[in-house]
């Protein structure tokens, strides 16, 4: 998965979030994790562990402070993936 593009990350993230939240709405990069998907602080911690395993990266909890939308999360994952290539 080392050559993954950001578009692929976003696409995979949307699918993972749909499974994680059982959301009936369509998840897009603009979807807000808190207001649209009702991911509270505890759910977010568990989501992070799933994302770490899916993308085989370490996501420090402190890096989540600026994450509001799916796009924000995708940006963070891409940044970490790029740094660990």
């Amino acid at each position: 998965m080392s050559e993954i593009t950001q578009a692929q990350i976003t696409e995979q993230l949307c699918r993972r979030l749909a499974d994680f939240t059982n959301a009936e709405m369509e998840i897009s990069p603009e979807t807000n994790l808190i207001t649209h998907l009702a991911i509270d602080s505890v759910k977010l911690l568990n989501l992070v562990m799933e994302i770490e395993d899916h993308f085989d990266i370490s996501v420090p909890l402190n890096a989540l402070v600026d994450v509001l939308t799916v796009q924000d999360l995708s940006n963070l994952i891409y940044k970490i993936k790029s740094a660990t290539k």
């Binding site: 911690l45 992070v48 562990m49 770490e52 395993d53 085989d56 990266i57 370490s58 996501v59 420090p60 909890l61 402190n62 890096a63």
Partner: peptide, 23 residues
Amino acid sequence: SGADIIRFRHNDMADLEKRLRRL
């Protein structure tokens, strides 16, 4: 502390090892 905070699944040693290896 300002250190990077990573969680492992409660009392799950395979999960702890996986996260240590990734580091």
